[in-house]
Simulated assay, not measured.
Amino acid sequence: MKKILNHFLLIFALSSCFGSKNNFPNGEFPEEVQNFELLNTPHDEMNMDSDVLYHSVAFTFSTNQTSAGGQFDLEVSTLDIIWDTETGSLSFSVSEGENNRKNAISKASNSSCDERGPYSFYDESGDLVMLYSGRCDEETEIKLVREITEGSNSTFSEPQSIHFLPESHAEMYPSLMGGDFQKSLKIEEGRSPKNIVFSADMGDGYDIYQIEIPDGISILEFLRSEEFPEASKLNLNSDFNDHFPFVYKNILLFASDRSGGLGGYDLYYSIFQNGTWTDPVNLGDQINSAQDEYRPILESFVDYKNDMLIFSSNRPGGKGGFDIYYVGYSFP
């Protein structure tokens, strides 16, 4: 399904019926971390991607539920996010709508490999592109599936492998950034990404890298290249594992087991300013725990006071293993 609107049609319908009071006109996500119960199971759910559709949000994530704790597959769950303007309450429900993302995911998940770290965007034709990390036979590489539209029909390409690095390393969690690029909008002139950010284990552990996207080339031409410009390590990396990057505008979110955290992997952010990344900031004990927090992403909504920060964690109190959590957050 082609993207036409960006973040304009969240579900206010249940709260805007004739005669209802408008005591709380602007939505607000809670400032305390919440379990995303509609998405979680007793197994592991992690590595979220989100996409606001016409009247709902499609969440794509990794889960080993189908294999009862074995391999990870990608799953899609489309939810309505409902803000009641009369009572000021937030709720979620499973959407009745359908979207082509499930078809793309079926292309990715029909294998014996682990699929993790989904990241979607809309190319110059307005077609859905899904990047993800596939791990087969001890090798982890980035893969691509793309929607192919012919008239009123659409299909999806077979997965294509992408190797950003010249040697065999685990390459994971790609994210586009730069210029006026927005992952939820079709790429057009003036809105092309300038860099791709990803993590890889080129050294003793994981670091975060970026590759510059040359001018005058479409994103698909770039991703399908046989050779890529040399990857550079971001200045925010530490001597520990810096992993699970996600870029939202000029904000880089990632997880790290660097010293000074609360335990395991903590969530951090850095802001791109004056051509460099600021010193990473720990998101603090209101979000991080003594356990592991993985793959943070950020989603912004019109008419909401704050953004939705989504991540996975194996903290106590969940349904089992890693669960997906969300919290309201406002970055400086």
Rank of each mutant, 00 (worst) to 15 (best):
T63S: 14
N282I: 05
K143P: 03
M48T: 13
R116V: 06
L309C: 01
H163F: 14
Y119A: 01
I217E: 15
D303I: 00
P118F: 10
H169F: 15
F222H: 08
C113Q: 10
Q71F: 13
D180H: 15
F228S: 00
R191I: 01
L53T: 09
L53S: 09
G117I: 13
G70F: 03
K305I: 00
E37W: 05
K183M: 13
N47C: 15
K21Q: 05
S238V: 00
S192T: 13
E37Y: 10
E189S: 15
K102A: 10
E221H: 07
V129H: 03
P280W: 06
F311Y: 14
H169Y: 11
T41Q: 00
K2A: 04
M202S: 14
T63R: 05
E141A: 02
F18K: 12
A170Q: 09
L90H: 00
S109N: 13
M177V: 10
H169G: 05
W277C: 04
G320K: 14
F92G: 08
Y269M: 09
I219A: 07
N103D: 10
A255R: 12
V281F: 11
I211G: 04
Y206I: 04
I105W: 03
L53D: 06
K319T: 11
F164N: 01
A200N: 05
D180K: 15
N237K: 04
V197M: 15
G203C: 08
M308H: 11
S184V: 10
A104T: 02
L309H: 06
D201A: 02
G70K: 05
M172S: 07
P332T: 02
Q210G: 10
G70S: 03
G216F: 14
E98M: 13
P118Y: 03
N288M: 03
G321V: 10
G19I: 04
Q160W: 12
E212I: 07
V281G: 10
E167L: 14
S111A: 04
Y54E: 08
S111M: 02
I208Y: 07
G275M: 13
I324C: 06
T78Y: 12
Y304A: 00
M46F: 12
